[in-house]
Design a protein around this nucleic acid. Structure first.
Length: 827
RNA sequence: GGGCAAGUGGUGGAAUGGCAUACACGCAGGACUUAAAAUCCUGUGGCCGUAAGGCUGUGAGGGUUCGACUCCCUCCUUGCCCACCA
């Protein structure tokens, strides 16, 4: 059937229906077949799908269909990450139920996905906001609580006093609440944490096993986990029994420590300033600093502010009395919340010391400019060099001194070699409605009591008034809050915070293995068969949080015996963004292109083909309407060419038939393209898959135009058509199905047809093109027999008039011969 | 400040040590048509030349090599991520 603008919709809808009715993509565990699990990061259902989704899911779909045709048992599921703030915001703004809003969005999204013809096993669709899903969030939470990996801690968070809710760092705009513009403050709240730091080492170490992950994602995770080697050093407070423990990665500079700095939140601060002259001013400074939102305080090149505490400490290596300062540039949540300041060798300390007239001492000499003195320093010297002013360590290269001094401090008990991690435990409490209720009960007698497993799920109540004010909406829902304590049966209150939505997405890939299981979180056998995910496809924006949390959950679930893999995702592909006019497509910029409109005009296959052709999957993609026409033209050419198929002839040649030159050429190109294209599919180079298909199509057209007639030619055209249609099918599946059927494909779907194979013998050429260079410059080309000898070729080249012109009787110093490719005469 | 990625025609891009610009878009010319659309054919990096042809050319500079878009060094630009991390 011809592929015309009038019937694209008809063809695409027809095949989508057939795929659905015949359960073409239904995945079942089969021990006799090799499995392949393809997964894309499931979407947040905000309404229509956008181009970013289209690109992400098209890439994954091509991989899934390619693997299916190669005979793998493919699992390719889809679902919705359906809890989260946008639903709540919609509820506040438009006074509709978040559940109703979310399910309407899911409906819209599903329609969009189906129109793209993706090969999902729709029987496995999940939505995280359904209680049959979030019940298992609660179950995991209880398991973690049991193992001591979920715990409650008071911590300081961004708080909007007007909205009475916590705010994520991203919701604080220049120190103000993004919604009501009230100044945001820091507030101590009792919050639930997950002890991801329990897996510090494993999360870091196992990154090295992920050889099919992009190195930048691994680098980002490594950075985020942030392991640093160094030492803890104990500074006694002068005239006191208190000790300040500092952490440093530069124990080699300890002799240059001229003051100590504490974070304003440091527990010793209050004790140190008590009764001093500056008590009041320092306390005011501390309170002022702590009231500032963390995001603001941590932002870059803010001027460092600090004050002298009035107290002194003793540098343990030289017994010097040095002042203790309190400054905002020291953070309580890294290291010990206290530092030794070495202004001569740390730029931040240098600036702070200059500002506050604090002493400096050089302890590392610059080998380029020896005899450097403090007065000459324009900035801190942070490079390598030998130690000076460092007692018995003088002269030692500082890199070596790091270890030596740390060991010496450990021996003399003034310090300890330690490792610090940047990774913090994960705060999951949210004072929000649209999320999974944390299954805990606060009992005045028994304390914090977990909800018994048999009482799960703790159902999120429906029809709650959400105003965006007055704190957590669940707090005002009496029938939810009031509960009997599971232990003492007395009156108690439920936890009203819900879980951060990253919790939901940290294990959904496991639920996909047996999504309908009502009795268990997932079936162990199914998970053992399908896991790990062989190919994960998604955006780079999840490089850290989502991927790290998922790795954490997998490790935990392995520890409790539910899965048998250490890592959830074997391969990771991060697709590039879709740009228009050089900018990321976004609603706020108003430069979006609606996939629906493109499908309406050209069909899904054209959209799929264009998006794959326009750029390699990992690169940014510049949207170009004209490119669509090119994709459209190509599919039309394939479609028209298929009209040449002659069903009465098949594909087998009479073996008595002698192939002509033209016959050999088309056969060689067909076979070599099967090879090339299959390799490109394997390496996810879909843009060159498309261009190679175009080249094969061009060759086929040229072959057909050659003035040569007969059955044999038609048979070879039949072969070529069969090949093109199958190679094209992962990319343009609707058209391929339609064409496959018209050319006599017997399978119920082309995904059941075998992937084309090639014959090595057909790739051989009789004649090859050899390039001739003189001194590395291209001077000629020879069409020669494939088995020409080196000497023969040399003579041929030297006798060529044009080559002689460049050689000009100069002696040939060197003769380079690359068999089958090139010769280079060096004169 | 640290880390990572990238830089090739008018445009998207191809080539990972061996013919730079495949494939496509765009543009120009032509065929078909009363005309248009569609389709098909031809041309298309820059400079010199009527032409044959020559020179030059992959962000800049240097190096390795018979030969470099590709490998090494220095620098520039852009993008992304992290960051008062001790």
């Amino acid at each position: 059937m011809a592929y015309h603008i009038e019937n694209i919709k008809e063809i695409e809808e027809k095949w989508q229906k057939i795929w659905h009715n015949k359960h073409i993509f239904k995945a079942t565990m089969r021990k006799d077949k090799k499995k392949y699990y393809v997964l894309e990061m499931f979407p947040y259902p905000s309404g229509k799908i956008h181009m970013g989704h289209v690109r992400n899911y098209t890439i994954a779909d091509v991989i899934a269909r390619f693997k299916m045709m190669q005979g793998f048992n493919v699992l390719h599921p889809m679902g919705y990450d359906a809890f989260g703030q946008p639903a709540e915001n919609a509820a506040i703004k438009r006074d509709i139920d978040p559940a109703q809003w979310t399910y309407a969005c899911i409906e819209e999204m599903r329609t969009g996905l189906k129109r793209m013809g993706f090969s999902y096993d729709w029987g496995r669709e999940i939505a995280t906001c359904g209680q049959e899903y979030y019940k298992w969030n609660q179950w995991i939470f209880l398991k973690m609580f049991e193992k001591g990996l979920a715990y409650k801690k008071i911590s300081s968070v961004n708080w909007c006093p007007n909205c009475e809710t916590t705010l994520a760092n991203e919701e604080v705009i220049q120190g103000e609440c993004w919604r009501c513009k009230t100044t945001v403050v820091q507030k101590d709240l009792d919050q639930w944490y997950l002890k991801i730091t329990h897996y510090n080492d494993a999360l870091l170490k196992d990154l090295t096993t992920l050889s099919h992950w992009p190195s930048r994602v691994k680098a980002m995770q490594e950075n985020w986990i942030g392991k640093s080697f160094g030492a803890e050093i104990y500074f006694n407070v002068n005239n006191s029994k208190d000790v300040i423990t500092v952490f440093t990665t530069r124990p080699d500079t300890i002799f240059g420590a001229t003051y100590v700095v504490l974070a304003p939140e440091h527990p010793l601060v209050e004790k140190l300033i008590k009764g001093t002259l500056q008590e009041k001013t320092v306390r005011a400074f501390v309170e002022r600093t702590m009231a500032r939102p963390k995001s603001l305080r941590m932002s870059g090149d803010l001027k460092k502010e600090g004050m002298f505490s009035g107290a002194y400490a003793i540098n343990p290596v030289n017994k010097e009395t040095i002042p203790i300062w309190i400054a905002d540039y020291v953070l309580m949540d890294y290291g010990t919340g206290a530092i030794m300041a070495v202004p001569a060798h740390d730029q931040r300390d240098f600036l702070f010391a200059k500002e506050n007239n604090l002493p400096m001492r050089i302890v590392i000499q610059n080998p380029q400019t020896p005899n450097l003195c403090v007065e000459d320093l324009q900035r801190a010297y942070e490079d390598q060099g030998p130690l000076v002013n460092s007692a018995q360590f003088n002269g030692l290269p500082n890199e070596e001194a790091k270890q030596k001094i740390a060991e010496w401090m450990e021996q003399t008990t003034i310090g300890k070699i330690t490792t610090y991690w940047r990774l913090r435990d994960w705060l999951i409490s949210r004072q929000r409605y649209w999320g999974t209720p944390i299954p805990m009960i606060d009992c005045p007698k028994c304390g914090t009591v977990p909800v018994p497993e048999k009482d799960l799920p703790v159902v999120l109540p429906q029809k709650i008034k959400i105003t965006g004010e007055g704190g957590s909406p669940l707090k005002h829902c009496a029938e939810f809050v009031n509960v009997n304590c599971p232990k003492c049966k007395g009156k108690a209150r439920r936890e009203t915070d819900t879980m951060a939505t990253f919790f939901d997405s940290s294990w959904y890939y496991l639920r996909f293995c047996s999504p309908k299981d009502a009795a268990k979180i997932f079936d162990k056998q199914e998970a053992a068969y399908w896991m790990p995910v062989d190919q994960y496809v998604g955006g780079i924006e999840h490089a850290i949080l989502h991927l790290l949390y998922s790795r954490f959950f997998t490790k935990f679930l392995k520890d409790i015996g539910l899965v048998n893999v250490d890592e959830p995702f074997v391969r990771l592909l991060t697709q590039g963004m879709v740009l228009k006019n050089g900018e990321v497509m976004s609603k706020s910029k108003g430069n979006t292109v609606d996939p629906d409109e493109i499908i309406e005009k050209y069909g899904a296959d054209v959209l799929r083909l264009f998006i794959l052709f326009a750029a390699p999957p990992e690169d940014q993609l510049e949207w170009n309407d004209d490119g669509l026409d090119g994709a459209w033209r190509f599919l039309n050419r394939v479609s028209h060419f298929t009209g040449e198929y002659n069903p009465s002839l098949g594909e087998k040649l009479d073996h008595a038939y002698q192939l002509t030159e033209a016959d050999k050429t088309i056969e060689r190109e067909r076979n070599s393209m099967i090879k090339k294209i299959s390799e490109d599919f394997d390496n996810y180079k879909f843009n060159t898959v498309v261009s190679n298909l175009m080249i094969l199509m061009n060759s086929a057209d040229r072959y057909r135009a050659v003035n040569q007639k007969g059955t044999e030619k038609k048979i070879l055209i039949n072969r070529t058509i069969q090949t093109i249609v199958r190679l094209l099918s992962p990319i343009a599946p609707h058209l391929a199905e339609e064409l496959w059927q018209t050319i006599g494909g017997k399978e119920e779907s082309i995904v059941r047809a075998a992937w084309p194979t090639y014959e090595e013998s057909a790739l051989k050429q009789d004649k090859i093109l050899v390039v001739v260079q003189v001194n590395g410059k291209l001077r000629g080309k020879f069409d020669v027999s494939v088995d020409i000898q080196e000497e023969e070729l040399k003579t041929l080249a030297l006798n060529d008039a044009k080559i002689q012109e460049f050689v000009q009787h100069k002696p040939v110093k060197k003769f380079i011969y690359v068999p089958g490719k090139l010769i280079n005469l060096v004169v």
